[in-house]
Design a protein around this nucleic acid. Structure first.
Length: 256
DNA sequence: ATGCCCCCGTCCCGGGGA
């Protein structure tokens, strides 16, 4: 079972690239972020005509999440519980082949401090609660997405330069670790304890060419999922495409 | 110190992204 997460930065611009990557990488479940597409504008036919299944939760202009799957998608749950007033489309949960998956677009939080950073932290507290509640199901769970958190300095091309940013902020890192400490595993770091892996390169200043990257997209596995983990990595190739997303897919493989 | 680039939309600029 191949599961990946990819911030595509507009599904309308990238639908062909996404479909091509999905097929080429033999993906079973793809968790997508930043679709930037309202539900009635989501290019679902691009995937349905290929016999794939797709669910999505979007809003105008910003955010938006989706799941594309080779297998049926059931028990879809829209939105992260805990704040009825939160209208940003950043969370979508569903079950595929007995695995509970969540596609997550965590708030960036800059500038920190400020209201956007407060929203990030409160969102992470809600994610902690939901992550805890999900463990009680004893299902294999995969929380995948753009967490907008650089977990460790090694995950950043210039830690000193990023000090004070909402992506390296200690409170944000601690909130990320709090989910890990519930019993979730960072799939990439479980397979590769050392080594530099990036999932994002800015469009500006030749960041891709200079390999000025960040690791901010993650797959967090519950114990029942981690027990089945056989491989994980980042496929940076799509970042070198013509008209690419600024993120690359992070993926993992679970044994059946 | 700032912007570089890219995407969106009652759209040719400004907001948001990271």
């Amino acid at each position: 079972m191949h599961i990946a997460s990819w911030n595509v930065n507009s599904i309308k611009v990238r639908s062909k690239l996404v479909l091509d990557w999905f097929n080429k990488s033999n993906c079973d479940i793809l968790l997508i972020q930043e679709t930037k597409s309202q539900d009635h504008n989501f290019p679902k036919d691009s995937f349905l005509t290929e016999g794939l299944n797709v669910v999505f939760h979007g809003q105008k202009s910003y955010n938006g999440v989706a799941i594309i799957s080779r297998h049926p998608i059931t028990n879809v749950s829209i939105g992260l519980p805990g704040d009825a007033l939160d209208d940003q489309a950043r969370y979508l949960e569903a079950t595929v082949e007995g695995i509970r998956v969540a596609t997550i677009y965590l708030p960036n939080g800059n500038p920190a401090p400020g209201p956007k950073f407060d929203y990030k932290i409160s969102w992470m507290k809600r994610l902690f609660k939901q992550s805890y509640d999900l463990l009680k199901t004893e299902m294999p769970i995969i929380l995948g997405g753009d967490f907008n958190v650089i977990p460790e300095d090694i995950d950043c091309y210039d830690p000193a330069g990023w000090e004070g940013d909402a992506l390296t902020n200690l409170q944000a890192r601690a909130a990320f670790r709090s989910v890990i400490n519930l019993g979730y595993s960072d799939a990439l770091r479980t397979v590769h304890q050392t080594g530099v892996f990036y999932t994002y390169w800015d469009y500006q200043a030749g960041a891709w060419q200079k390999d000025n990257g960040l690791r901010i997209d993650h797959l967090l596995l519950s114990p029942e999922a981690a027990d089945r983990l056989s491989d994980a990595g980042v496929d940076s190739e799509p970042r070198g495409n013509v008209q690419p997303s600024d993120h690359a897919p992070v993926w993992c493989t679970l044994s059946d």
